[in-house]
Write a protein that binds this DNA or RNA. Structure first.
Length: 470
DNA sequence: TTTTGAGTTGTTCGA
DNA sequence: GTCGAACAACTCAAA
């Protein structure tokens, strides 16, 4: 039998994998491949490093199954054509993606493969529900979260697919490049070693984390997930973003806990559906990545100056507002940020500092190891006010009030802001080791005064909204 | 077609 | 200290 090419992309797992399951079920050899193409090349520094770590974990998982992951570099279509020619494969399988660039690439590849008499098939699994299967009663897509939640909350999610016991290898493996030669982490510089201490890489560790979470902090998820000093969130976004775990795995785990009366379970399920919402919006309005979802915002006078001192202060954790700075430093050190921090820093950048959400979105795209195009774009536009189901104009987060509500015991700030502490914790000091030397920051400096105070920024932002002249 | 109620995550002010 | 109202006007979803 001719081999099947299993093209891995952002689905770095063997369990609950529709394409792999189908490839194995065909009965012939399976050739697993990962391609370093333009889309990989265009990733930001941290997401690219994290992808490389995930690919390395997938390599090991495949080797444990007595097969290999073939690595190739180049335009995906040329690479796949070459592999077909080398191996005599008659089919290429992959898991579907939903961002416009991937879809364009995949459509082109599917057409070219089919035109050559090959089987080219894409499978679902990155989402619980395909975007085109969730509609309002009049046939449109949901632009508000809650109705979408109500329409899908009781839907059946198919049972999980078990990991194939064996993945039949080809008689001889095609040549593979070396992962190290790709240098996927080279843009990370000083931060790489530090971020890697916080990352949870690979499908096995993702599964272990899901188990740990559902047995542990899920119980109080509804309360603690909002408090950044608590270990209250699932921290699974990193794994979801690369498909090391599937939303269906999370869904089934959450449903089982819901049936047991676990108070946190429903809120967790709702968060998984937020991810769906973001991807459905991306599918229906791909411009959400680059343009104001509500065009009325096109004339809002945001600054787009990346070299402004305000923007530098924001990204380097030096605004003088502790909640903002703690969150931005957490981002730089760990490659993630607590959800509450994301809301606060986004509100501060787009409102107090009157800076365009695109700059924040791009910085997150450089720094997040859980970077996800759909959630990132939706979140930024939500915070800025230009997006679907967005925050009303008057919902300006006050970083000082937020402290009283969500970090009154200083735990979060102590973890990330070294200045002024007798014995700063390692995490707070690591920030100064991780950042570029050119930023010239030291934990021995005095903590900065606010560049734009909570009060002043709020009033300024509200005045722009008020005169509605934008 | 029209109407109705609702809309993730907040803050401030005044009683 | 606590609590409810106000903060625009609009869009969305469903009846």
């Amino acid at each position: 039998m001719s081999p099947t090419i299993m093209w891995f992309r952002r689905d770095l797992r063997l369990q609950d994998h529709a394409a792999l399951t189908a490839a194995v079920a065909k009965g012939g050899p399976v050739i697993a491949v990962f391609i370093f193409d333009e889309l990989v090349k265009s990733l930001g520094a941290a997401p690219k490093w994290r992808l490389g770590a995930g690919v390395a974990a997938l390599q090991l998982a495949l080797e444990a199954k007595s097969t290999r992951l073939i690595l190739r570099r180049g335009p995906a279509l040329s690479v796949l054509r070459a592999l077909v020619a080398e191996t005599g494969a008659d089919a290429v399988y992959w898991q579907r993606a939903y961002d416009p660039k991937s879809q364009l690439r995949d459509t082109e590849i599917k057409e070219a493969m089919v035109a050559n008499g090959l089987e080219a098939k894409s499978f679902k699994g990155h989402l619980l529900f395909e975007p085109w299967t969730v509609q309002t009663k009049v046939g449109g897509f949901f632009k508000v979260y809650t109705p979408l939640w109500n329409s899908v909350r009781n839907r059946d999610v198919p049972d999980l697919l078990v990991e194939p016991a064996k993945i039949p290898p080809p008689d001889s493996f095609p040549i593979s490049e070396n992962l190290e030669d790709w240098q996927l982490g080279h843009q990370m510089q000083r931060g790489r070693k530090i971020v890697s201490q916080y990352a949870r890489v690979g499908a096995a560790r993702a599964q272990a984390r899901l188990d740990e979470f559902t047995q542990g902090s899920l119980q109080n998820y509804n309360i603690n997930r909002d408090i950044p000093g608590e270990d209250g969130t699932s921290k699974l976004a990193e794994n979801l973003s690369l498909g090391e775990i599937t939303p269906a795995q999370c869904w089934h785990a959450g449903r089982a806990e819901l049936d047991r009366g676990n108070a946190g379970a429903e809120v967790f399920l709702k968060e998984i559906v937020w991810r769906e919402f973001a991807y459905h919006l991306l599918h229906h309005t791909p411009d959400i990545l680059v343009k104001n979802w509500k065009p009325a915002w096109d004339s809002f006078p945001w600054s787009e100056d990346e070299s402004s001192s305000n923007f530098f202060a924001w990204k380097s954790g030096g605004t003088g507002l502790e909640f903002v700075d703690a969150a931005m430093r957490e981002l730089y050190v760990t490659g993630t940020m607590h959800n509450r921090g994301r809301m606060i820093v986004a509100s501060y950048l787009t409102k107090h500092l009157m800076t365009h959400w695109r700059l924040g979105q791009a910085w997150f795209g450089q720094c997040l190891i859980d970077w996800d195009p759909a959630s990132n774009a939706m979140g930024w536009q939500w915070a800025a006010g230009s997006g679907p189901d967005a925050a009303p104009y008057f919902r300006v987060f006050n970083p000082e009030t937020q402290i009283e509500k969500f970090d009154s015991d200083r735990r979060y700030r102590r973890s990330w802001i070294a200045e002024g502490q007798q014995n700063p914790p390692l995490s707070a000091l690591q920030f100064f080791d991780a950042i570029p030397a050119s930023w010239s920051l030291s934990h021995k400096n005095n903590y900065p005064k606010p560049i734009v105070s909570a009060k002043e920024g709020r009033e300024k932002a509200l005045s722009y909204y008020k005169n509605r002249d934008f």
